[in-house]
Amino acid sequence: MKRKNLLRVWIVLVACILALAAGIGIGSVMIFPADILGILGNKLFSLPLPAAVEASEVSIVWSIRFPRCLSAFLAGAALSASGTVMQSILRNPLASSYTLGVSSGASLGAAVVIVAGFTLPLAGALTLPLFGFVFGLGTVLAVIGFASRMDRGLENQTIILTGMVFSLFVNACMTLLSVLHQNYMQQLIRWQMGSFSGNSWEQVGILAVVMAAGVLYLCRFTRQMDMMTFGEEAARTMGVDTKRAKLKLIVAASLLTGTAVCFTGTVGFIDLIAPHVTRRVFGPAHKYVLPVSALFGGAFMVLADTLARTVLAPAELPVGAVTALIGAPFFAWVYFKGRGKA
């Protein structure tokens, strides 16, 4: 069982590398893996470039596709890890940090920046992501604060209900804003649908730091999460301070989602299916499910983004639509394939 799962982890790691190679190589200019390695060697270790590689290819790979693919990978991983945590601790297979209002909050923040058209000093181009992040996390904190006032035990239904109420309220504010400023609608909708175009190395850096720190932090709680799937009372009886654990996990997971969303828009679906697919293959233990669903979600996002920008090139599809378009059938395939085998 264990050995089998370790082998599977290696397979997932290889799949991640292949997905990244595909994402970086495929496009209007095709670049082969050997050349990608050559360019990487040149940039990282100042090795001589392969003779066949042109300067334009170097800039396409290094300045455009690398940051784009890496941010897609990191955002996918962050969303999936956060989705896994939310599903487990809220004991609800449909829960995600979107349920708690991260995306509606972030959208409102972005809308405010787009409509008001201002940039903060120092933040510059990062004003929009910064506002999205603050509004997204602010919404979740408001939800948690309100829920714990309503119900000292912080029951799951209370959290989900409060999250829904706040999300709807924030969405209504957003609708109001977009009706009053119709000329910005197009821009807002584009942002909400999500895209990785124009992502820079700085964004990759921020995403990488948050992702790594966030996922490592969440990994400290894998055992508690296992226990909480048996119900909160059972976990408490066995010695888990579930209220504290839940608060820490929700805030950490929302931080991950908030960071991903503020750079890419609200890409859905991945955080929903990555944990389910991973559980199907690896079993329910979180020490596997959490890191592997992050890897799986990352690879899936890279492929979705690659399709989004190539299928109708030069036009680009919103990546959020692609994740659902290929994700739904994939989800069905994984489920029905395993039928009868148990």
Binding site: R223, D226, T229, G231, E233, A234, M238, G239, R279, G283
Partner: peptide, 18 residues
């Protein structure tokens, strides 16, 4: 206390060792 996810018997009992 119910079981919602397919942990093995051994994994479940080990949780008691937390």
């Amino acid at each position: 206390s119910g079981a919602s996810l397919p942990y093995t018997v051994e994994e479940t009992v080990l949780m008691g060792r937390y």
